[in-house]
């Protein structure tokens, strides 16, 4: 089976300023189906640029990008939009849900665009199913402002899943969340990954990266390390540990 993501000697140079900025300097990478990758690096290392390239939000200056066997490096704006709609799911640091729009309608949104035509009933059912996967089907009619950060992020994950993407891309998905909620969200990712979904996420937190299977480290636009995670964290055990630690600190009532 071919890798779902295959990039060859990819470069991105921004020409907008006086001095051209060489953000990504020749990255070659393959991601297999079912992988769970954390992309790490200091700010300015080019990880956001690489993520935008992977997410088909931007085109590389040089190099080739094969997504699910399709060369997407030279596609036009509308073709890229269709690729994003059909093959990719996005989860952002700031959740990026539409305000004053219910959780269900937010999840339905990707199905309203795109080439595949669904009936209103199908759209509703699929959106409800995805909310069910992230455990929020009871709150389908809540507005984002009525949900906690972790719940909003789970709605965003449901939205990313709804078109059955090849790759789920998450840009600092836990950046705005506390430790416990982060572990919960990582738990959702791990569950999805166990069901075979490929996930690529950007993070700068080492402990979050340990929830993944593979860590990539980027520095100055070059991939400097690519390793499997040996001592992997699991959401269930991490949450257990947190609970007992909190109980010890009398932060919450002890669980029986």
């Amino acid at each position: 089976m071919p890798p779902v993501v295959k990039i060859e000697e990819i470069h991105k140079i921004y020409e907008s300023g006086e001095v051209p900025v060489h953000a990504v300097r020749g990255v070659t990478l393959e991601i297999e189906r079912g992988d769970f990758v954390a992309l790490m690096g200091a700010s300015g290392s080019g990880k956001s640029t690489l993520m935008n390239l992977l997410g088909c939000l931007d085109r590389p200056t040089r190099g080739r990008y094969l997504l699910d066997g399709i060369d997407v490096s030279q596609l036009d704006r509308n073709a890229l939009a269709d690729i994003r709609n059909q093959k990719l799911g996005f989860v952002f640091q700031g959740f990026n849900l539409l305000a004053r729009t219910t959780a269900l309608e937010n999840v339905e949104l990707p199905m309203l665009y795109g080439a595949r035509k669904f009936t209103t009933k199908q759209i509703r059912e699929r959106a409800m199913h995805c909310l069910d996967i992230v455990g929020l089907s009871q709150r389908f009619d809540h507005f984002p402002s009525q949900l906690s950060g972790g719940q909003q992020q789970r709605v965003a994950i449901a939205r990313a899943l709804v078109n059955e993407p090849q790759v789920l891309l998450a840009d600092e998905p836990t950046g705005n969340l506390d430790t416990r909620t982060s572990a919960e969200v990582m738990g959702v990712f791990q569950k999805l990954n166990d069901e075979g979904i490929t996930i690529v996420m950007v993070t700068h937190e080492l402990d979050i990266a340990h929830f993944c299977k593979r860590n990539l480290i980027l520095r100055d636009g070059v991939l400097v390390r690519d390793e499997s995670v040996s001592n992997r964290s699991f959401a269930a055990t991490e949450l257990e540990k947190l609970s007992s630690a909190e109980a010890a600190a009398k932060l919450t009532g002890a669980k029986s």
Binding site: G55, Q86, N96, L98, L109, Y113
Partner: peptide, 16 residues
Amino acid sequence: TREIGIRLAIGAHGSD
């Protein structure tokens, strides 16, 4: 602008 960005990111065409 942000809403437009979200719509474009999840696959809306410029024409939409």
